[in-house]
């Protein structure tokens, strides 16, 4: 069984590594649209895919993954917005978990927008 002692060990490790991720002002943000329509269209597995891919690539200090509300484009859900400080916000539409590794690698790591997944490519 998971114990609080284990949680204490995690705490001590996080403190030792100065895990100040949440205060990192340069962190990129992945915002997954999680209004009713987004959730119904499959936003939850997309959010999990981002979280896993970012952890796998050791980017957890540089990228935060979070939910956002209604983006106002139901027909394109699941919608994901990516904000990198100093760069233009990019909106990906009809995102599926299979698309996530490429978005992380191309966009978040190499700063190359995956244009064919963006709203511009679909409209």
């Amino acid at each position: 069984m998971k114990s609080l002692a284990e949680l204490q060990a995690i705490r001590d490790r996080a403190k030792a590594q100065l895990d100040l991720r949440r205060e990192n002002p340069n962190a990129a943000r992945v915002l997954v649209g999680m209004a009713t329509c987004g959730i119904a269209a499959g936003a939850r597995p997309v959010l999990n895919a981002f979280t896993e891919e970012i952890a796998k690539r050791g980017l957890t200090k540089d990228v935060t993954v979070t939910q956002t509300g209604c983006i106002g484009i139901c027909q394109y859900e699941p919608v994901v917005e990516i904000e990198i400080p100093g760069e233009e916000k990019v909106t990906y539409v009809k995102v599926a978990p299979e698309m996530v590794p490429r978005i992380v690698s191309d966009h978040l790591v190499h700063h190359q927008v995956v244009s064919e997944y963006t709203i511009g490519a679909i409209k």
Partner: peptide, 26 residues
């Protein structure tokens, strides 16, 4: 959990993994 974590955020990946396992086991 917060009492144990002494300021370490709940969204720290290892903390979230602990939470997920806690929920699954229970």
């Amino acid at each position: 959990l917060r009492e144990v974590l002494e300021g370490v955020s709940l969204d720290t990946p290892d903390v979230l993994a602990w939470i997920a396992q806690f929920l699954e086991e229970n």
